[in-house]
Design a protein around this nucleic acid. Structure first.
Length: 476
RNA sequence: CGGGGCAUAGCGCAGUCCGGCAGCGCAUCUGCUUUGGGAGCAGAGGGUCGCAGGUUCAAAUCCUGCUGCCCCGACCA
């Protein structure tokens, strides 16, 4: 393991992989494009799952599980959908030593197999809505992969809901993007822009795609979650109808929404620094670590006894660990826990035994404070809350400092190259201008923000009329 | 798919040009001294040199074929 990490300044993308290696979050698997999520990384995902699952249940959703394999014919039912996903699908052609009569797609997403089932489950308006989520793995055969951000197989959750009316489905779509916003900001301490995707960027098979979009420390955008209003596209493709109260047959309205282990990558790139991982307390698997310092066995026993005393009432308030390993020295331990992103470290040595205090160190700021041992528990609780808020505020500040309102295409191109960031610019809404933007600058329209103030202007590219600004950035 | 690079101990590499005992650093193990920001000394273990052929008295090294991975570009959560 490297002694010092590559700094963000030196090479941002090497820094990112160094942070992951140093914190032992993940490792490259022997299969191209695939990763192993190691215990430290998986623990973060489990914290995310726990929080999200509660938010889903609180909004009336239930978990279920659908098959990994999807018959080829299902994938081909919805034209736009198959066109969007076919190039990146893995297909199973053999099973049990024989060629299959019908090839099976490894799910890139589950709309088709789920709607093939919803057809059987829905007859009348009384069967609606169906509000189902599944936690699953999916496979998308990517060319270029990066740990957590883009791998061939990844873990995610996908919600799939069925509704009697368009209004209700739209409402669900909006509700879930709001759930994602809340999760990103309250748990990940990661500010996001909530917005609508352009037609070019939306999900294959959706009418509208809403997204949460975050800014990483290199000023690039990262799509952190999406919620789709699917209209009746899948209901029509799978012939899913219901009988209305008035006795007529109507096609069912649909939504789907998901976030993935990509969020772990987003979390890393939002808060971490040149010393390693920085985790927001609400998602840190380990929130505090106590590093006792001693010389010789007598002192060791005395210190550990004291540590046991003042940690006796910590359980239930926050997660913590006492690092009493004898084979590493304190300085080594400090570095290790910093690389792992533990929010609070407590140091206690011989000098502190007499004075009944300890040193508390914040991971996010490096700030050290002497705290009375009797005050430790409450101070740590407080500090964890403070860190959570401070991380969010710093991320908001960084985003604001790197957001620009521009009118001139030349100025935009210059700034995009020089410093990057989010650019609020006018866009006429045409696909031509959007394509040209990407071809010429590699930046894309990330979102048309929700509750966007109306403002007349001229399209950055063609000068045509525009009613509002959109957010443009280079993206992961 | 296009371009570039790499494959030798758990990790990072040297050795390859010019064939001749399989090396270095970190990590690991043992012992002693250490312990408030990545400890020091002494010793030890660990290898189908990516795979398959070929040339040669002799191949990590030369030749042929194959495979895998990484990086950079077009597509994507």
């Amino acid at each position: 393991m490297a002694k010092g990490l590559t700094t963000r300044e030196q090479d941002y993308s090497r820094w990112y992989t160094d942070v992951i290696a140093a914190a032992r979050l993940a490792d490259y698997a022997p299969v191209k494009g695939c990763m192993v999520i190691m215990p430290n990384g998986y623990a973060i995902w489990e914290k995310m799952q726990g929080a999200l699952d509660t938010l889903f249940k609180d909004t009336g959703h239930e978990n279920a599980y659908f098959p990994l394999f999807i018959p080829e014919s299902f994938m081909k039912r919805e034209a736009e959908h198959v066109e969007g996903f076919a190039p990146e699908c893995a297909v199973v052609t053999h099973g049990g030593g024989k060629e299959l009569e019908e090839s099976l797609y490894v799910r890139p997403t589950s709309e088709t197999i789920i709607w093939s089932m919803y057809k059987n489950w829905i007859q009348s308006y009384r069967d609606l809505p169906i509000l189902i989520n599944q936690w699953a793995n999916v496979v998308r055969w990517e060319m270029r992969t990066r740990l957590f951000l883009r791998t061939t197989e990844f873990l995610w959750q996908e919600g799939h809901t069925a509704h009697a009316t368009s209004e209700e489905a739209v409402q669900e779509t909006l509700q879930m993007i709001e759930v994602y916003r809340q999760f990103a900001e309250e748990f990940m301490a990661m500010p996001v822009i909530v917005g609508l995707k352009s037609d070019k960027e939306k999900f294959a098979g959706a009418i509208q795609t809403y997204c949460i979009e975050a800014m990483m420390q290199d000023c690039k955008a990262l799509q952190a979650g999406t919620s789709h209003f699917l209209g009746q596209n899948f209901a029509k493709a799978f012939d899913v109808t219901y009988q209305t109260e008035a006795g007529q047959r109507e096609h069912v309205w649909a939504t789907s929404w998901g976030v993935s282990t990509r969020l772990v990558g987003a979390l890393i790139m939002t808060h971490s620094d040149d010393r390693g991982l920085v985790l927001p307390p609400k998602l840190a698997p380990l929130q505090a670590v106590v590093v006792p310092i001693w010389r010789g066995d007598d002192e060791r026993a005395a210190i550990l006894e004291r540590v046991d005393q003042f940690t006796a009432d910590w359980k239930g308030h926050f997660s913590f660990k006492i690092d009493d390993r004898d084979n590493y020295r304190p300085g080594w331990k400090f570095n290790e826990w910093e690389q792992r992103g533990v929010p609070v470290r407590i140091e206690i040595g011989p000098k502190d035994l007499e004075s009944n205090q300890a040193v508390m160190v914040r991971r996010d700021t490096g700030e050290k404070q002497f705290i009375a041992q009797s005050e430790l528990r409450d101070t740590i609780v407080q500090t964890l809350q403070t860190i959570q808020v401070d991380l969010f505020n710093r991320a908001v500040e960084r985003r604001e400092n790197n957001s620009h309102y521009l009118e001139s295409y030349e100025e935009f191109k210059q700034m995009l190259d020089d410093q990057g960031g989010f650019f609020y610019v006018h866009w006429c809404g045409s696909r031509d201008c959007e394509d040209r933007l990407q071809a010429e600058t590699k930046a894309t329209i990330r979102a048309i923000p929700m509750n966007n103030p109306k403002e007349k202007g001229q399209c950055l590219l063609c000068g045509g009329n525009s009613e509002e600004r959109v957010v443009i950035a280079k993206a992961y």
